[in-house]
Amino acid sequence: MRIWIDGSARVPPYEQLRAQLQLMVSSGRLEPRERLPPIRALASELGLAPGTVARAYRELEWAGIVEGRGRAGTFVVDEPPVAFSVVERQLADAAEAFADQAKRLGVDQPSAMLALETAFASRSDPDPDTG
């Protein structure tokens, strides 16, 4: 599972984590009945406090995307209530490919994100429908 938390972002870490996990469920990268990593293990892996991960899991549970089963862990529900369009699925795939390529090149996340932001900024017309 590839999750990136940007400590310099304006979005709080728990929200970054929640959004990425929701995207993984929506795109099918986390399948129904799949167990999420234990809170402490994921917190340690991401360099976050366990309470931060717990909050993200709690918000996903409130949204009906995952369910906590006590000591057994947290699991994606059988039928997550998350709609995911074809365009969003293609965007998620493109993002995965970009991240893989950046990693192969030995580029860290901040540098890769800067390259992506620079590419967007260099586009004279951000809306392809008006072109």
Rank of each mutant, 00 (worst) to 15 (best):
Q20N: 00
G106C: 11
D129V: 11
A63T: 04
R10F: 11
R123I: 09
P38N: 10
R2H: 13
Q90R: 08
A99T: 15
R55F: 04
E88S: 15
A92R: 05
V25K: 11
R18L: 13
I3C: 10
S122E: 03
D127H: 02
D108H: 04
A99P: 06
W4K: 12
R89T: 07
E34C: 14
R69Y: 01
W4P: 08
F84D: 03
S122L: 09
D125V: 05
A41S: 09
S111N: 14
S44E: 14
D6E: 03
V66A: 07
K103Q: 13
A43R: 10
P12N: 00
A121H: 06
V25F: 05
F84E: 01
V76P: 09
R40E: 08
L60A: 11
R33K: 08
I3L: 13
D78W: 04
A41L: 11
D125M: 04
S85M: 07
V66H: 00
M1D: 08
V77Q: 05
D125Q: 11
E34V: 10
D78E: 15
Q16G: 06
Q109L: 09
K103R: 13
S124Q: 15
S124Y: 12
F120Y: 12
F98P: 05
G70S: 01
D127Q: 01
P110Q: 12
P38V: 06
T130V: 15
G64H: 08
F120N: 03
Q22K: 15
A119P: 00
V87N: 07
M1I: 08
L23N: 13
V87P: 03
D129W: 09
Y57D: 04
G73N: 03
L105I: 00
E45L: 09
L116W: 10
S8Q: 13
M113I: 06
I3H: 06
A112Q: 14
A72H: 05
D127A: 03
R10V: 12
S27M: 05
A72G: 01
A95H: 08
R89G: 09
A121L: 07
L46D: 02
W62C: 00
D129I: 04
L48Y: 03
P13H: 00
